[in-house]
Design a binder for these strands. Structure first.
Lengths: 226, 226
DNA sequence: TCTGTGATCATTTGATCACAGATGCTATAA
DNA sequence: TTATAGCATCTGTGATCAAATGATCACAGA
């Protein structure tokens, strides 16, 4: 496991720290599909007792980010083409709505932030690691969604992205070489989105967001097993 | 017997029982908004130790069905008009999509089930208690949604209904007299939905579902505090 | 060679306890 | 009378331990 899960800072509760780190790692695709996460094992890597870990795992299972095996162990869900399509269909309607609401409310400062992210993505794409790229992509999308002001939508989208984590892992392992070779331009669509935002063509922003999701879906589907 | 053999129900844990009961009670609106649920208190009513209860509460909090107070206690969220609108807006896009997918796939047998529910609602509306009515309403909607075959959408809708629970409570306390007096016909829209389903006018089914959600929203908004 | 049985191991689940943080109340002083 | 400090109480958190459950594997019998 080449993930950087260090001991948690005990400013919040230990359980929360464990939860947040696991959640972020899952969303970024840092676990393998079907990987099994044991309470004792994680407790050791986090340097805590079993207690905080088991509650964190149950919380993640309640969000459908993990599955509970028949013996009670937690597992990262497996990836399938059907589930990918199911997730993307839901993502499209929810994120399209969040975009509709958020795009018109983006401040000039927000736009600067978005442009900053895009240029950082260009930088990073060439040399740095894929996880930073995934995080930047996350920041870009959620900057728009957060502007919607809808807590409900944001939480819905977060659980969808969480469940999308295992697919992100496929992206990491299979697409990273392409990006490095310059055959894939990860920020391409984001540039179009920023342009549409600047011309305040919100209908087009919405379409671009949908296209962004669909494009990822098309890239990932052939990579799914079977 | 058309029983399909699936994975046998995994081990029955106490925690799951507590979780299911709390979840159902919350969804039906059996708790007051802002009500505080203590671990020890619930453990006593359930006749268990604290352990299963505290994990059940954390799971529900992870689904945004409960809020965690500053001392860690769990509270039922308060109701506000803004949150009501936010929830309904999300409900509309998600449930509309589930209806789009599910309605064409409903079997004749499903239709019979739906008709059965509607007539039961008529019966119950007059004399029996409001919670049975809420449960019937739930069954009606989810029969359509389940036909979509989309696990992701169904789980999304479930968490939305869960968060809708406190508003259901307002419905129970303020609207029950109206229904009893015959001033409100709870199954009215459902009849229209069944009709549209029978004529296979799926666009209209979708519109009726949206109208159903919006109607509830309009009933509830003036009842919100402030 | 295949199948059923039993033992063993890995892992979760639930209980209990000590501790810490928050809340609220009382007593004391201005 | 009011404000505040300090104390008592309530409640959750995390650790540890015992019990229960499911998985695995070896072995015996057909």
């Amino acid at each position: 496991m080449d993930m950087s899960l260090g001991p948690v800072s005990s400013r919040t509760t230990i359980q929360d720290g464990v939860y947040q780190q696991l959640r972020q790692a899952l969303m970024n695709g840092q676990f393998n599909p079907a990987q099994s996460l044991t309470i004792a094992g994680l407790a050791e890597t986090f340097g805590t007792s079993n207690m905080p870990v088991r509650e964190a795992l149950r919380r993640l299972a309640a969000e459908n980010a993990l599955e509970i095996a028949s013996n009670g162990s937690a597992r990262v869900p497996v990836v399938t083409a059907a589930r990918l399509d199911d997730l993307c269909r839901a993502r499209i309607v929810v994120e399209a709505l969040a975009t509709e609401l958020g795009a018109p409310r983006l401040t000039p400062k927000d736009l600067e932030v978005l442009k900053g992210i895009v240029s950082e993505q260009k930088e990073i794409g060439r040399d740095k690691n894929i996880y930073t790229l995934i995080t930047k992509n996350q920041q870009f999308h959620f900057t728009i969604y957060r502007a919607s002001g809808s807590d409900v939508l944001i939480q819905l989208i977060e659980t969808l992205w969480l469940r999308f984590g295992p697919y992100m892992r496929m992206l990491s392992t299979h697409v990273a070489p392409l990006i490095r070779a310059g055959e894939s331009e990860p920020s391409g669509r984001h540039i179009a989105i920023v342009e549409a935002l600047e011309s305040r063509d919100f209908a087009r922003v919405r379409e671009e967001i949908i296209a962004d999701i669909s494009a990822t879906q098309e890239v990932l589907r052939p990579l799914c097993p079977e």
